[in-house]
Write a protein that binds this DNA or RNA. Structure first.
Lengths: 359, 359
DNA sequence: CTGAAAGCGCTTACAG
DNA sequence: CTGAAAGCGCTTACAG
């Protein structure tokens, strides 16, 4: 009946014959209000079609938006390309939602539109999930907002939030490959900054130098297992196409490897795509290992030998860390204890993409 | 050098010796400011570490948050379960970002946490993507916020935003199945409200009655092609498990169908899972068709005969519609022309999941 | 248990 | 081309 638009707390308070502060407390519950007073306020609110304090007013007055930004390119790819980031996003979103925070998706800053967006968006904290492009401008900007921030994919802030023993996992995986009798083994590892470092053959040391810390740990595991690669390829993107490029280069060698160890499932998938196209069978003619254990289409029934990274769980862990940072900030004590990072287990999954060589 | 926290427009204006309004206009560009005045303001801002007007202040003053909420369960499932919603989300997010809007993810209201979140979050408009659970409370709430809202999955607002000729596509698909010689054909269609209508055998008319409008159109296509189903199964969820349930029931029949027509790829995948498990070959022993053409794992090299629904494109179309609604609202004219909905083409993709029967 | 008032950080007519 | 002022819708000490 009543005009439902733009009913304010002030109007409700007036109608109920109480002060704005009292009406406010009825809704927030931050102060005890006499039952009958509260009832009067609720009644007036209902009659006027008032559905609770405007999130906007509350945000300005309290300085808290209940919003966390997630800067990512994950959705800007074919879902098939980066399912791990999607899973992480899922975990982040669930944990934030549970804690009463909405998750705002924003792309990295790459042009005027994304720059304007970054400036226009409100948030209390931020997580950046893929630093494939645009991070040169995005990172300093996020820094300038002076809010709690966790950057994943090998940044220090990730290391402080979640512990992953990549090396232990890849060591086990590589050890089993060696036990299967492989001697000509190649490594395909990835870096992020494709502009400076495109796909291409390289040396182990150069790859190690350019790789993010998590990839380094994976390479460490290969070394610890005793792998002496006959060739090393640098994947410039975390995308299937870089895996194809790796296969093309590696299979052209005079004595091609019998097994390629990768640092991401998407690369293993790209390698399989290419190998099949040139008529090779997996794993009989070429073995391959991955990392992540994501669901990928078009593998034709092959189950990858890989390391399981539970993205959803990882997202949850990271979210909990950010929530604690937010809390610490609210306490006004930058030095509040954040506690140790949680550990994400990384079990090996032994599929059927590695052949056991008999001689 | 300077203390970087909590620098306000007012402080910058004072330092530059201009009025707040002038400083504001330097940043928004909504009014012409003398070049040297602007320079003075920018200089002061830089010196004080001011990175532009607070999104919060701007939002309160202008009443616009530059945020669009997307209510969805898509991320709350295994990415493998609902890749179409993910693709739609992708399209929404891209289009919104381009228009300067951030995308806020919130879950449907199912408990106190999600209710609080829904109330706390700020947004100028909203799109709801999956109405699987919690919509009984979520929908009225979204309604009560009085902002432009598009609900997908067979609601009227979707129909007004995007035109899809599902019937034409499924008619073509079913026609080809009939041409392949199939006579014992079953239909597995889906509904949303699993609480009231669980998985189970039903009649065509009952399914039709309970189905959302888009599923109805798909069923229309089957009828138009001349299909006379020997059995009809109702999938109570849009998940692989409901497909398995369908296969279990349908294959138990005395004279089981040679082909099952579904209204979603995930159901086709579930059917394949089950059929394989009981030792049937696809398509030799059982043919199946889908709808959506999403990437699904574990299909073992089978390419589904299905209808291609480009989720990303659909998301973009829906986003553009919402943006137009927002604009219309801003103009203060509820009656502003929104124009016709855009059409999303639905091509048939003929894979290898339907056997050609020779007799 | 309740009120009056300041203030959160801006934008936007209005006025000149 | 620029300023002074009102106001967006709340929350939160402060006071009683």
């Amino acid at each position: 009946m009543a005009e439902h638009r733009h009913v304010t707390l002030a109007a409700v308070a007036k109608a109920a014959g109480v002060a704005k502060s009292t009406a406010s407390h009825v809704f927030t519950g931050k102060r005890v209000v006499a039952p009958e007073t509260a009832e009067r306020v609720r009644h007036a609110a209902a009659a006027m079609g008032y559905t609770g304090p405007s999130a906007l007013g509350r945000a300005l007055a309290s300085g808290r938006t209940q919003l966390i930004a997630v800067v990512t390119h994950a959705l800007l790819e074919d879902p098939d390309t980066d399912p791990l980031s999607l899973a992480i996003l899922d975990g982040l979103q669930r944990e934030f939602a549970q804690a009463g925070y909405g998750t705002v998706l924003i792309p990295p800053i790459t042009d005027d539109a994304s720059r304007d967006l970054a400036h226009a968006v409100l948030y209390d904290g931020v997580v950046s999930v893929r630093r494939m492009v645009g991070f040169e401008e995005t990172n300093p900007y996020l820094e300038s907002r002076h809010v709690p921030w966790i950057a994943l994919d090998g940044y220090m802030t990730e290391e402080a939030a979640v512990v992953m023993d990549d090396a232990k996992a890849t060591e086990e995986l590589a050890r089993r490959v060696l036990e299967a009798g492989h001697e000509r083994i190649a490594i395909a590892g990835y870096t992020f900054s494709v502009e400076e470092l495109p796909d291409g053959l390289t040396t182990f040391d150069e790859l190690y130098e350019a790789a993010p810390t998590n990839v380094r740990r994976r390479l460490d595991g290969f070394v610890r297992a005793g792998v002496e690669p006959v060739a090393v390829f640098r994947c410039g993107t975390v995308a299937r196409s870089s895996g194809e490029a790796a296969a093309r280069a590696l299979l052209e060698m005079e004595e091609p490897p019998t097994c390629i160890l990768t640092t991401a499932d998407v690369h293993a998938a790209g390698i399989i795509d290419y190998a099949r196209r040139v008529g090779l069978r997996i794993p009989e003619d070429l073995s391959v290992t991955g990392f992540d254990a994501v669901t990928l289409g078009g593998l034709g029934g092959i189950e990858l030998c890989t390391v399981v990274q539970d993205g959803m769980q990882k997202g949850r862990i990271v979210a909990r860390r950010l929530l604690r940072m937010l809390e610490a900030e609210r306490e006004g004590r930058g030095g509040l204890e954040l506690g140790d990072p949680e550990e994400l287990p990384l079990p090996v999954r032994w599929g059927d993409s590695v052949a056991v060589l008999t001689r």
